[in-house]
Design a protein around this nucleic acid. Structure first.
Lengths: 202, 202
DNA sequence: CTAAATATGTTCCGATCGGTACAGAACGAA
DNA sequence: TTCGTTCTGTACCGATCGGAACATATTTAG
């Protein structure tokens, strides 16, 4: 919305919007919304306050754009997992993808949706709600996928798609918390193995 | 440390330390550490800034005392669960207790260790570390308990106590995140059922 | 009664917060 | 050139933060 060049009139921008947004996303990812101040952002992005406001609106709008970028980038494993052929493979891909994303050494630990805004100041409640809604949306999409799987016989007729989706979200967010606390990927992969033992047979 | 009466000399305190700490704990629980300011605390506790500092030290010391109180009060289900006779019952009690604690209508949703300090400002890093250490300690105690269960034949000899403990922590913290986002206890109890399906047979 | 000790309420401090005013710099159009 | 437009950098704003200064009130010890 605010980051697009309208015309070619005026002084050209001296930084790349994409690169700046990528850097902002990583700062939010590592430090959370409340834990990040404008100086942290402008330093990481290599631009001034004024440029930040002109290009992205304000701190909250920048965070929302960073969240979108996270969803399309590091968090895209959620979408990929939905394309796996069987429910068990969807579940496995979802959990494995979460482990990989939250434990890469070249990226902040944990999940942006957990790190970013679980605990925020009351005046920043809309930010927390946005992230919570994002998790709810992911859960809804998993639910749809598992309902389809049940119709296809990929899951037992007695299984509960909404329950399975919530279970996956619980394990996923729980692992994100663990990763933020320093858990390694080998340990978390074993957790995934344990979690999948609860999965209904095909 | 700072809350104990040394002697009976001087003007007596006009508030109950226990009651004030209980109220402070609930504010931190609901709003997180960074999201709570001194005015929130003094209003809820019914005391002045000066009294707060005299009785509890400072904001961080008060939070640590609130965390201790949480561990001994609402979070005590973790200790109780360890006393169950079998590993499966320990696991069930741990998860059920977590659900009950994080979804009671008369208390803040979620877990203080998740709500309180997952995302904090860099200068408040010690606070985040304290909560992370608290979770690690809980996991260590679960590990010990499951090692004992394995020695007693309560768990298969091939089972991994550390893995089972981490799995429980993952599910538990994941459910806390869900509860903070509005998930109801019925839904979470079904998640516990699903999670326990992964548990090794006795 | 006096002195020491502790608690209280008011007031203020320096630092930091997110956000902006303003002037100058770099462009295209005329 | 000159103007309108857009970006950049500095300097600053009011609000809020955690924390402390200070005077006052209330207790016990002597």
């Amino acid at each position: 919305m605010a980051g697009d060049r309208r015309t070619t009139v005026g002084r050209p921008r001296e930084f790349e919007t994409d690169e700046a947004l990528e850097r902002a996303m990583r700062v939010f990812w590592a430090q959370g919304y409340d834990g990040t101040n404008l100086t942290d952002l402008t330093t990481a992005m290599g631009i001034t306050r004024t440029s930040l406001y002109a290009a992205f609106g304000n701190k909250e709008a920048l965070f929302r754009k960073a969240l979108q970028r996270y969803s399309a980038g590091p968090g895209s494993y959620g979408s990929w997992a939905l394309q796996e052929p069987t429910a068990r493979e969807v579940a496995a891909a979802f959990l494995r993808g979460g482990v990989e994303t939250t434990t890469r050494p070249d990226r902040p630990a944990g999940c942006l949706s957990v790190q970013g805004a679980l605990a925020v100041a009351p005046q920043n409640r809309p930010v927390a709600d946005a992230v919570s809604d994002w998790r709810d949306d992911a859960r809804a999409r998993l639910t749809e996928r598992f309902a389809l799987a049940r119709d296809e016989g990929d899951l037992p007729a007695s299984s509960d798609p909404a329950l399975l989706a919530r279970y996956l979200m619980v394990v996923s967010t729980g692992m994100a918390v663990q990763a933020a606390g320093g858990a390694g990927r080998e340990e978390l992969h074993r957790v995934v193995d344990a979690a999948l033992a609860a999965w209904p047979p095909a």
